[in-house]
Amino acid sequence: MTSLRARDLMTADVVTVPPATPVLAIARLLAERGISAVPVVDADGAVAGIVTEADLIRRLAGEDDKPAGWLASMFANPARDAERYARTHGITAKDVMTEGVVSVDPDTLASVIAHLMEEKGIRRVLVTQDGRLKGLVSRADLLRALVAPAPEAGDLSDDRIRRAVLAAMKKEPWADTFYALVDVKDAVVEFHGFSRSAAVQRGLRVLAENVPGVKGVVDNTQPMPTYLFAAA
C-alpha cells in the first residue's frame, strides 16, 4: 500500500451536482445511489464544495432552531449566526455545502491521504488537478488497498532482505542495531541479542514483516541485562 497513489485508489466516476441543485434532490440522490457525499462543481468544471450527509443533517436540524434568549443575544456574532442560518435553512447546494474541501493531486501517496483523513477527521478527499475534479478517495478505498494482496516481491536474496531490515531499523530511534542482531534464512528474519522491552520486540517484528520478501519473523532476543542498561 505504501507505493499506491491517489490515482490508483480513487473512484473516477464521481457523481456531481451544480451549485443550484435543490437540497431535496441531493438527499434523494444520496439515498438512491447509496453514497454519503456529492461534490459541487460549477459551470466551468471547477470544484466549488461538497455536500455530505452531515451537511444535510445539519440542514434538517436547523429547522428546529429556536430563537436565542435575550442573554445569548447580547453575546451573538451576527456574521457567524447569519452564516449558520444560511447553511441550516438554505434550499440549494451552494447554501448548505462545505466550501473548505480537502483535496489532493493524483500523485499523492496513500499514506499521506490516510494522515489527512485522520488529522482532519474526514471520510473522503477529492482528487483534483488544476482545480478540476479527477476522482474521490474514501476511507473504504484505503481499506480495500490495505487488504488487497501484496504484489509478488520476487526471489529476493536473504542478504538483500537483511540489508533492507537493517536500513529500516536505522530509521527508527527505538530500534537498537547495536544490541539487536539480524539474520535471514530462507526469507525468515531472525533477531538475536538483547532488546530493551517487549514493546521493542513487537516493534521489530512489525518492522520486519513490512519489509518486502519477508516470509516470517523469529524473535530470539533476550531481555537486556541491567549492566547493559546502565551502559546504554
Rank of each mutant, 00 (worst) to 15 (best):
L29Y: 10
P18S: 03
R202G: 05
V41A: 14
A68Y: 11
A86Q: 15
G131L: 11
R162W: 01
G90A: 02
K185M: 11
V147P: 05
V184H: 09
R80Q: 10
A168G: 05
L29E: 06
V40E: 06
R58Q: 15
K94Q: 15
R196W: 07
A6F: 07
Q201I: 01
E32C: 03
V214F: 08
P39S: 03
R196F: 07
T16M: 14
G62H: 11
V102I: 10
V218H: 13
S195A: 15
A175R: 07
R7L: 12
V101F: 07
V188L: 05
A93V: 05
V104C: 01
M10W: 08
K171M: 07
A167D: 15
G90S: 02
T11W: 09
K66W: 06
A231R: 12
I50L: 08
P223L: 03
L143V: 08
A31M: 02
L24P: 00
D44Y: 10
A82M: 15
M1D: 11
V51T: 00
V137N: 09
L204G: 07
H192T: 10
D159G: 06
A72F: 09
R132Q: 12
A145L: 04
T2L: 15
D8Q: 12
A12C: 09
G135F: 09
R7N: 13
P106N: 05
T16W: 11
D141P: 04
I122H: 12
D8S: 04
A54F: 03
I35L: 02
R124S: 02
A199S: 04
I91V: 11
P151V: 07
V17I: 07
V102W: 09
R139Y: 00
K134M: 15
S197K: 08
D44F: 01
L133D: 04
A230P: 09
A61Q: 13
